[in-house]
Design a protein around this nucleic acid. Sequence first.
DNA 1: GTATGATGTGTTAACGTTGAGATACCGAGG
DNA 2: CCTCGGTATCTCAACGTTAACACATCATAC
Lengths: 341, 341
Amino acid sequence: MSLKTIAELTGLSMNTVSRALRGKGYIAPDTKAKVEAAAREVGYRPNRAARSLRGGKGYEIAVISFFSENSRHGDALQLDRMIGVKQRLALDDYEVLPIFLFREERFFNRNLQTLKRLASSRPAGAVWFEETMALEHYAAVAAGFDFPVVRIAPEPDRAGDCVSLDRAQGVADAVEFLYRKGCRRIAMAMAGEGHVTGFGRLSGYCRAVAGLGLPEWIIRTVHYAEDPYEEGRSLGFELARAAVRPDGIVAYSDYLAAGMLAALNASGVKVPDELQLVGFDDRELAGFTAPPLTTLAQPSYELGRAAAELLLRRLNDPGAPAECRSVRMNLMERNSTKGTT
Amino acid sequence: MSLKTIAELTGLSMNTVSRALRGKGYIAPDTKAKVEAAAREVGYRPNRAARSLRGGKGYEIAVISFFSENSRHGDALQLDRMIGVKQRLALDDYEVLPIFLFREERFFNRNLQTLKRLASSRPAGAVWFEETMALEHYAAVAAGFDFPVVRIAPEPDRAGDCVSLDRAQGVADAVEFLYRKGCRRIAMAMAGEGHVTGFGRLSGYCRAVAGLGLPEWIIRTVHYAEDPYEEGRSLGFELARAAVRPDGIVAYSDYLAAGMLAALNASGVKVPDELQLVGFDDRELAGFTAPPLTTLAQPSYELGRAAAELLLRRLNDPGAPAECRSVRMNLMERNSTKGTT
DNA sequence: GTATGATGTGTTAACGTTGAGATACCGAGG
DNA sequence: CCTCGGTATCTCAACGTTAACACATCATAC
């Protein structure tokens, strides 16, 4: 089942068959129909190896994501993003080439090697799925990429095609949601402020409370632990002891929120009655805390799909101006906030 | 940077260069050294498209995993397995080709299409990463695979290369662990008994209690909910009301265990003081329950690595007898069981 | 001394696809 | 009439690799 098969079947030359199937160059309408019929009949699928060899470029899109050596658990959100990319690319007959880099700084050189190897395998394009470990970090090798890369960016930028998750909007939505639930002392619990993605959350919070005429109340952790859950716990105990408490909190992450929740429960502070809590990311654990956590869902599939679309657009039109698409977060209502009254 | 480059550089023929680099056929030691030096110098990497084209087979290993349309969260264990495969295959210069099938029965035909498409892309081999949706289910199309497949099997079998997770051993370990922690009324909480993977858990439990001279105590859920967490909750409430309770329970899954734990906490039954609980799989949530769940960790990377190794062995030696490798689970001690005294 | 086998290297063709260029036919315009 | 541009098809070469085969050299064995 190659072009040759069809050529023999139809009595045409291989080249004519090729043109007919791709609709490129001159081709008589009924020749085209005949070829297409024959192709369908024998179940022809173009041989990608041959196509790559001829064209000098692969048909794969590298999906570059990250994992931690010392963590026992992969990041399910990364998997979901990859599935999003895959589903979209399948429609255009591209394949996904998963690339996993280490999150740890000490593996920098190993990551560099991996990327060099990727470059030499000449994919059609790549999606860079991490904001905190930015592509610019690997500029030296990335400069040698002769294929387009779509990044996930903390903020829309002009440096090329990118998809950004609108964290600011998400947090603002959460603040307004808490306001509607009756909260008037709405705080933002921050952690890991070194992360570039922290700005969005913080600015969304500030914008929203300002818009509602509420005072800013930003809770910072003492940063005593690497583990956001533990940070959350210490923060929760502090809150429980405090003379005045917020009545609504948006947390930097679900892990932080889960830690706070555990500490608040243990200290007898009632969630959501005394304090309503909104998490961030909609990790799986958000469904299993007590009470289950209201949280801002990161639309991972959508993120992947958007990135794939930008990449396809770039491949079909290399000269197009850079585009940055923004993806909204969705508030996932559970029971750490009050029910509709 | 092709064989031609090196051939010109060394003054040899392309074929000699090819033989030197692959160490196949006759080659003079110093010729080999010279070629290898030149290859290193120009950073030669074989063009896989050309190799595939010539060889008629791709250099990709399909990693077939599953996801649920209606679930918002991908299965992190599947990602980890894929990373395990990837890490191992990278050493042998194979690429991973991720394939995602729907878990839902109603997408059967769509899955069939996906697999047909896979077959026509001629990968070097495949890993089938699911036991409940067995490969045999797709026997019609699988029969057309002209590449080896390594399966994850519920039990070691003789139907071909496979990797099996030793759930029986895992559960037996857990029972003995509970015994050492002082438990004498050790129960197994079952759910989803239709699953083929349930047998192993059950038989491991029976074997272990028999070995310890303890009575069997199998708790079955009324199966009122699809959701294992909810099943766990109802089960936990039942237990709390019961006149006599086990003092140690091994749960069918972490979700079931987490649900039970929530219900027991809410009912005032002290875990681990009154009842010790062991989960199954070491999902991420196991680290975030109150108290954190002792659980049997599924060594996902290892599972992937083992599958990759079997596949590589098969590719290098197509005639070798079928091999089935068994992978042990590790007990992950947390605080839903008593500390070391 | 020459047949024999082992060793090292070169030549050629093929994998499936596609772009460049050649060929052939047609109708319109000089 | 011949030329020209448009249309439709074909021929050929090339992408990088490797297997089959041919060739050359050398040491050993008869």
